[in-house]
């Protein structure tokens, strides 16, 4: 399978504190990868380094044969190929649901308003939020906001969707509606990289599970390998605590 993003020897430090140490990792086309690990293990930082919301301290991120950490690389253009879904939704508060899904297409991708609207409605339909196109973010529930955020990212037609703990800020009864949308995206063959604490979900949809601890990738493989028959002591310990 074709590799979409290839990460080589990636490191990230905040001052003296080393959050990522020599991470090597890649995402292939059509693959669903779940990043798991305890808080502070560096999995969110890794995701944020991939779309350069955090600037890596060292290493390479190869996309379409080019290292995007080169100084001359157009970061804004690169980011349009990655769809990001945040834990805190981060919908644009000044725009309604439709506006949220249009603004990036129109201003960044320079699509016409009509084309952008058609695309936006298509993806709002996918997440089941097309009925609420006129609502403002403050009028929506957490689950609804997150579904709109997913539609906003999809409308840019990214190569990879990045999810940073998309259900961690949701009430328990809203987690289901967001996971349902994500299951559908996975089934449709989207390339997805998901930081999550939902072990059952990871087991079900992931093609590959990556376990991180203290800034390094400890173990990776199929859900069965990592979640059912972990080889490393640290993975076993983590799973014992989360799966009970």
């Amino acid at each position: 399978m074709e590799t979409v993003i290839d990460i080589k020897h990636l490191s990230k430090s905040f001052g003296q504190h080393e959050v990522l140490k020599d991470v090597n990792f890649s995402v292939r086309k059509g693959e669903v990868v779940c990043l798991i690990g305890s808080s502070g293990s560096g999995k969110s930082t890794l995701l944020r380094c991939i779309n350069l919301l955090e600037r890596p301290s060292g290493g390479e991120i190869i996309y379409e044969g080019e290292n995007i950490l080169d100084d001359k690389h157009d970061i804004e253009k690169y980011r349009t190929h990655l769809g990001m879904v945040f834990q805190q939704f981060n919908l644009f508060n000044n725009l309604n649901v439709l506006g949220n899904c249009i603004v990036g297409q129109q201003k960044v991708l320079k699509r016409s308003k009509q084309e952008a609207t058609v695309k936006a409605l298509k993806y709002l339909q996918v997440v089941g939020m097309d009925k609420y196109q006129n609502a403002k973010p403050r009028q929506l529930s957490g689950g609804q906001k997150q579904r709109v955020a997913i539609a906003r990212a999809l409308a840019m037609n990214p190569d990879v969707m990045l999810f940073d703990e998309p259900t961690s800020a949701l009430d328990p009864e809203m987690v289901g509606e967001v996971l349902k949308v994500m299951r559908r995206l996975a089934a449709e063959g989207n390339t997805m990289l998901i930081v999550t604490h939902e072990m059952e979900f990871a087991k079900e949809v992931a093609d590959r599970v990556v376990f991180m601890d203290k800034g390094v990738i400890v173990e990776e493989g199929s859900p069965d390998q990592v979640l059912v028959n972990p080889q490393h002591e640290r993975t076993k310990e983590f799973l014992k605590r989360t799966l009970k």
Binding site: L53, E76, T80, A153
Partner: peptide, 16 residues
């Protein structure tokens, strides 16, 4: 801060 990050994540520059 999330508003800036979301805007950057869809490829907007500082001005946009």
């Amino acid at each position: 801060k999330g508003q800036y990050e979301a805007a950057q994540a869809i490829g907007m520059n500082h001005f946009q």
